[in-house]
Amino acid sequence: EEQLFSIYILKNKSSVLLIKKSLHPFSESHQIFARVGDNITLPCRLKHDPSFSFGASSNRIKWSKLEGSDYEIGVLLSMGLHKVTFGRFQKRIHLLEADENDASLLMTNTELKDFGFYKCEISNGMHDSTFEVEIQMQASLSFTGVVFPYSPHLGRYNLNFHDAEAACLGQDAVVASFEQLYQAWKGGLDWCNAGWLSDGTVQYPITRPREPCGGRRTDAGLRTYGQQNKFSSRFDVFCFTVGFAGDSSLLPRLILTPFFSTAAEACLAGGAEMAKVSHVFAAWKLQGYDHCDAGWLADGSVRYPISRPRMKCSPAEAAVRFVGFPDKKLQLYGAYCYQAQP
């Protein structure tokens, strides 16, 4: 019989890392759609015959956030009257406890880092249940967003699913959902490299059928590779980021700096930070940002946004043009800076 277990390393009250995942199969899974700043409830209930109830005081509840192939981050641990919350979740979460079998988690003021997958394990010695809950980002009518493709400096097709999550988070974004990619495709997104979506599928949007992007005789649409192994399969990723709520002062701006190494200092001197890929895509897509000069971004890539196609900039289409990840010692580029909203 296969043994079910998990191993803890308890460093201190503010951090718990599980170095080996428990092997419990998920009995249920749920999706929650939220925006940054929302208060949400992540559902979890103990399923058992009520005639064998031990009462809430005997329930052991563990919530954790799935962060990759090897680690989970502790969120909450409850054993009867004793409850401990960890890290950045402290003071923002507590158990709903609507009845003796309810282990649902209330989360307030949802942050960008909160989006992703969570696991709830609840048991009372006789019965146990394990749930998976995904928090997905959702745009509202007043807070729109943009989907953009991303690959790291190592080149295309180098991200497993968990690397993809981290890559998007590093760009102030989350992995896009199928619905978000579909809406982006309807809006004209055309990209031949396949990328992860939040449901674990790998897809890419084509508005102009051509070789080798699925062939010329196929219809326009979302090409799919279906579900892929989140640990061993490697692709690019489609990220989703929210917009700037219409404040034109938040648009990235290009500055002149001799080296990439001094770009961050130059941006900071102007009360800003080096722009991320998400900042440039959001400014380009949502506010028509247009600048023909290529500039460094925080991830070491060089890009420039073109909303008005023209010669010597982007003659064929409006796009965020990608120069690549050049040698950082080159002095051919300025740097894009971004001033966060106060």
Rank of each mutant, 00 (worst) to 15 (best):
R208M: 03
P209V: 03
K186H: 09
W196R: 12
A245Y: 05
K186S: 11
P209E: 02
C239I: 05
A294N: 08
I206Y: 00
F231N: 15
L197R: 12
C192K: 14
G200F: 10
K186T: 10
E273C: 03
W284A: 14
D290G: 07
E273P: 02
Y289P: 00
S232T: 15
R217Y: 05
L251E: 11
G195D: 10
A184T: 01
V174R: 12
T257V: 15
Q228H: 00
A294G: 15
P258T: 11
W196P: 07
K285S: 15
Q203S: 14
F178S: 05
G187Y: 08
S198L: 13
F235Q: 13
R208N: 14
R217W: 06
P205H: 08
G246C: 10
S301G: 14
A194G: 14
R208L: 06
S278I: 11
A282K: 02
E273K: 14
V202Q: 10
A283D: 01
G226E: 09
A194I: 04
C267H: 11
L254A: 10
G226A: 10
G270T: 11
L256M: 10
Y304D: 02
F231Y: 12
L181W: 06
D199P: 02
P252M: 06
L169T: 11
F240R: 08
G300I: 05
L286S: 01
D219V: 00
F178A: 07
Q183P: 01
Y289T: 04
G243N: 06
D299A: 02
G270M: 08
A194E: 12
D219K: 06
P212K: 08
S261W: 02
T224H: 04
V280T: 09
T207N: 15
T241N: 06
P209T: 00
V202F: 09
A167K: 09
A266V: 10
Q171P: 06
L297W: 01
D190N: 15
W296F: 11
G295N: 03
A263P: 02
V202W: 04
R303W: 12
A275E: 03
F240Q: 08
V175T: 12
T201D: 08
G295D: 00
D172L: 13
G300N: 04
P252C: 03
V302F: 07
N229C: 03
L254K: 12
G270W: 01
T257I: 15
G221S: 09
V280H: 06
N193I: 03
V242G: 13
R253L: 12
V174M: 04
A194K: 13
G226D: 11
A269V: 01
G170R: 11
A184H: 06
W185V: 03
A269S: 14
S301E: 01
H279R: 09
V242S: 14
L256A: 14
W284R: 13
F238Q: 03
I206H: 00
N193C: 10
Y289D: 13
E273F: 12
D190F: 04
T207Q: 13
F178C: 00
Y225A: 13
A166D: 10
S198Q: 09
A263M: 07
A184G: 04
S177L: 05
W296C: 11
G270K: 12
G200H: 08
R234W: 00
G221W: 02
R253W: 10
A283T: 02
